[in-house]
Write a protein that binds this DNA or RNA. Structure first.
Lengths: 259, 259
DNA sequence: ACCAATGGTTCACTATATGAACCAACTATA
DNA sequence: TATAGTTGGTTCATATAGTGAACCATTGGT
């Protein structure tokens, strides 16, 4: 493994519940020698990607990632474009709307908007990692991905997040054809119990899916009349977001709303 | 130079007007061999920090920086905390309010809010690089920095951004004592002509300045009565932002507004 | 048609990275 | 209070990865 990849993989150890990590713990998490971890962390620190904090000198992400995020957004205004569309979806459906982005063989939650209508809502977490096989968003992405990507994803161990999570590769493959037909993926309790989500893929300028936009609701609120509202909102949201970022909706995608 | 630092320095070549860079151009900008650039870029790409775009296969920042920015924000909610305070400042002063963060020996613009009150306003750019010696924000940071940091900054070539930019190290040092007294730095046309800015430092939990909050206005609008409003707003904004991020205002800082 | 640029690749040679062992300081436990 | 175990951090003989001149196919400009 290249040195650069090794250093950057250290950054993957941070998450919402682990925003600060000490040197020894980082070495353990990364499976490398403490001296090696120290040197890699020092270079990341010199470059502004991490900094040391607190009296115990633990490490956390540095401000440089904020700057690069802004420059990334200047190139591909995904977060900016998502904000308005998610607000519209949350408004129309009265449920949680969110966007996630493919990263390797998983999804990363990018943005979410809650509806203020209900006291209970499906909660999202910034930068949360979602499964491709176990979420509506993931299935939406897989349905429009090349076969070799689908094969690679399904060849890996598939986590059973809930008793309802489908983990049989053939059963997952069978789910994909109807999703291609409808443009919409549904997942009921696949990632979190009692959560029913609808998702549609977002495409890049090559017509490849780069993520998905979704509405997630408690199962009890997803009645037949509401489903139709959610599907229409998600489908138009996906097309709108694809176009907002200069993406291209492939011809195989069923377009329920034209621009 | 370490390999990791070299790779990460490639990311510094992206800016608001250069969001996509080809392989050969990146090698030239970085002063390294094209084969080396290719290998480093490949590792950055595998890690999600950059991606290739368009028919010419040029590189741009990848989505991973968005995810890390969110995790950084979870650890140090600087952008989130800044938003409300900047809106208040822009509302009270009817001018552009902004926050910037120290990165090495320069400042990076983090967030800004425009006032809708005037047809003309001081424009800011996301992730813009500002000078420590030539901006109100920079001087605010320097005034409360350790002597060795001040010496290191002033030992480097100081860019004359406008005819009004002060570039004599001794003259700049002389500016710092009154700033320490008042807690506020002013800069008139030091970085951009016709722009008058007031800034105050933002501190971390060790009481060290990590950036500054500022109000920038066209010189013609900064009348004596408005100056007082701006100074008070900037000072209270700096203290509020310091506290919002768990920072500590050092005792040497003149506190115009207590929490 | 020719030239210059691009993105991308190869491999003998060179530079950097590694990690076992060590240190001082701190914390937990008996 | 003494001991053991943990922390962040460091060293340097050894091992591994990185380098870049030269090359390739393709594309674009003249």
């Amino acid at each position: 493994m290249g040195t650069v990849s090794k250093a950057l993989s250290l950054l993957s150890n941070f998450n919402q519940s682990r925003t600060e990590i000490g040197l020894s713990e980082m070495a353990r998490l990364a499976g490398i020698n403490k001296a090696t971890a120290y040197r890699l962390l020092s270079e990341l620190q010199e470059s502004g990607f991490i900094e040391q904090a607190g009296t115990d000198r633990s490490y956390r992400l540095g401000a440089e990632v904020l700057r690069l995020a802004r420059l990334r957004e200047a190139a591909v205004p995904l977060t900016t474009a998502s904000r308005g569309i998610l607000e519209r979806l949350a408004g129309e459906t009265h449920e949680t709307a969110h966007v996630s982005i493919v990263r390797g063989m998983q999804l990363n939650a990018l943005a979410h908007v809650y509806s203020p209508k209900h006291a209970t809502r499906v909660m999202m977490e910034d930068a949360e990692t979602l499964s491709l096989h176990a979420t509506g968003s993931g299935l939406a992405v897989l349905a429009f991905s090349p076969d070799d990507f689908i094969d690679a994803v399904l060849a890996r161990p598939l986590t059973r997040h809930t008793p309802d999570t489908v983990t049989d590769p053939d059963a997952i493959r069978a789910l994909l054809a109807p999703i291609r037909e409808a443009g919409i993926a549904e997942s009921v309790g696949g990632f979190e119990a009692e959560v029913h989500s609808h998702a549609a893929p977002v495409f890049n300028s090559d017509g490849a899916p780069i993520g998905a936009i979704a509405v997630a609701a408690p199962v009890s609120r997803v009645t037949p009349d509401r489903i139709e509202i959610i599907r229409r909102a998600v489908l138009s949201g996906a097309i709108e977001l694809t176009r907002a970022i200069g993406g291209f909706v492939p011809e195989c995608f069923p377009q329920a709303a034209a621009a």
